[in-house]
């Protein structure tokens, strides 16, 4: 049976790298005695895959990992057991059964929501919010992006699905996953360059809030939070 787990990673856990988080999560599953399946062979590993690695320094309330289990407790019990053995900064939010034959989270991630704040100490030019709106009005936003073939100019405007300012917080929905992954810090850096002020990564507080799959057609997006593809176990 395949299970999709949603969790948050906040507080000082933002300083735990993705690799260490994977190791940590395996220990949570063992402590909670979740009956997870292992691969075959002499060094078996847990069958689990994370939807999308979160960069060091970022927090999130929308992280996903898929696991395969032999049998599962009810969703409520699984949450209780896992949250009893985790640390401050991580909370498991959902534990849902996926339909048979469903694709794993990593392969279907299409978009992500972020909340971006500036650190208070960061001195910002006045009317930065208005400037951001102007910046987004451009039909194309070309930036230099490092790729395997070296630096390449790409237009990131189509990958910005939404971006607006609400009481000092920038809400953005960006393309994510294996096709076009736009990181919010890259967008902010590009905005800073355009507006003429520096936006170092350390000046930003970035919180991921949701990851989506795209169930739409080639012409029309239909973004669905990954958690909605599974259902609670009673």
């Amino acid at each position: 049976m395949n299970i999709r787990i949603k969790f948050c990673k906040t507080g000082s856990l933002r300083f735990i790298s993705h690799l260490d988080l994977m190791r940590y999560f395996q220990k949570v599953l063992r402590r909670a005695e979740i009956d997870i399946c292992y691969s075959e062979g002499f060094s078996p590993h847990m069958i689990m895959s994370f939807a999308s690695p979160l960069s060091l320094g970022l927090t999130s309330r929308g992280e996903y990992v898929d696991i395969r289990v032999h049998k599962a407790p009810s969703s409520a019990e699984a949450l209780e057991r896992m949250n009893a053995v985790t640390v401050e900064g991580m909370e498991v939010l959902r534990f849902r059964r996926l339909p048979e034959q469903s694709k794993n989270a990593m392969s279907i991630v299409a978009a992500a929501d972020y909340e971006v704040r500036f650190r208070e100490e960061q001195k910002l030019p006045k009317e930065w919010a208005e400037k951001l709106a102007k910046y987004l009005e451009q039909p194309a936003i070309c930036i230099q992006k490092e790729t395997k073939k070296g630096k390449q100019e790409v237009d990131i405007r189509p990958w910005i699905y939404a971006c607006s300012v609400r009481e000092g917080v920038i809400d953005m929905q960006l393309s994510a996953g294996s096709v076009h992954n736009l990181k919010p810090e890259l967008l902010m850096q590009s905005f800073g360059e355009w507006a003429g002020f520096a936006v170092p990564a350390s000046a930003l507080l970035i919180h991921r809030t949701e990851l989506y799959a795209d169930l739409g057609t080639e012409t029309e997006r239909k973004l669905v939070p990954l958690e909605e593809l599974g259902e609670d176990i009673g």
């Binding site: 000082s12 300083f15 402590r31 060091l56 640390v87 650190r119 350390s202």
Partner: peptide, 22 residues
Amino acid sequence: LALSDEILMSVEKPARYIGGEV
């Protein structure tokens, strides 16, 4: 935390300094 994000993000393996382990 005793150290700012800026410091922690500037060093190797910041998890060495944050405590809060299981």
